[in-house]
Amino acid sequence: MATILGLLNLLLRALEFVIVIWVLMSWLPGAQQSSFGQLLGKIAGLVLNPLRRFIPAVGIIDFTPLVGLILLQAAEMGLRAIAQTMI
C-alpha cells in the first residue's frame, strides 16, 4: 500500500513540475505553441481545465495554475497524512 501512495505522490509532484514549466514557457514567445509546449499544455490541462470553469481570468492574468498547484500540494499533504496513519 505504501508503494501505491508513493507512486501517487510521485505523480502529483510530476504534475506540479509540468504546470510550473508550462507557466514559465508562457514567458517565452512561441514556446507554448511548440510540440513540447502543446504536450505540456495537454498534461497541465488535466488539472487546469476543470478549474477554469470556476475561476475566471482577471484581465490577462490566469490564476488557475496557482490554484492548481495549491490543490496538488493539499493532495500531497493528504497522502502523507494517510501514509502516516498506516504506519
Results as ranks from 00 to 15, higher is better:
G6H: 09
L7C: 04
L8R: 00
N9G: 02
N9M: 15
L10T: 12
L12E: 03
L12R: 02
R13G: 06
A14L: 12
A14W: 05
A14Y: 06
L15T: 07
E16A: 04
E16M: 15
E16H: 12
I19R: 02
V20M: 07
V20F: 06
I21G: 06
I21M: 13
W22A: 00
V23H: 01
V23K: 03
M25H: 07
M25K: 03
L28I: 15
L28H: 06
P29M: 10
A31M: 12
Q32W: 08
Q32S: 05
Q32K: 14
Q32D: 04
Q33H: 11
Q33Y: 08
Q33E: 14
S34C: 09
S34H: 09
S35K: 14
S35P: 01
S35A: 14
F36H: 04
Q38G: 06
L39Y: 09
L40N: 00
L40H: 03
G41A: 11
G41S: 07
A44P: 03
G45W: 11
G45F: 12
L46E: 05
V47H: 01
L48Y: 06
L48C: 05
P50L: 13
L51N: 07
L51P: 06
F54P: 00
I55Y: 08
I55A: 05
A57L: 04
V58D: 02
V58A: 11
G59R: 09
I61Q: 10
I61H: 10
D62C: 11
F63G: 15
F63E: 14
F63Y: 13
T64E: 02
T64P: 00
P65N: 05
L66T: 10
L66R: 01
L66S: 09
L66I: 14
V67S: 02
V67W: 05
V67A: 13
G68I: 03
L69S: 06
L69T: 04
I70S: 07
I70A: 12
I70D: 00
L71M: 09
L71T: 04
L71G: 04
L72N: 05
L72S: 01
L72W: 07
Q73H: 09
Q73N: 12
Q73D: 07
Q73C: 04
A74N: 08
A75E: 03
M77T: 13
L79S: 02
R80E: 13
I82F: 05
A83N: 11
Q84P: 00
T85V: 10
T85Q: 08
T85Y: 06
T85M: 08
M86R: 15
M86A: 12
I87W: 13
I87E: 12
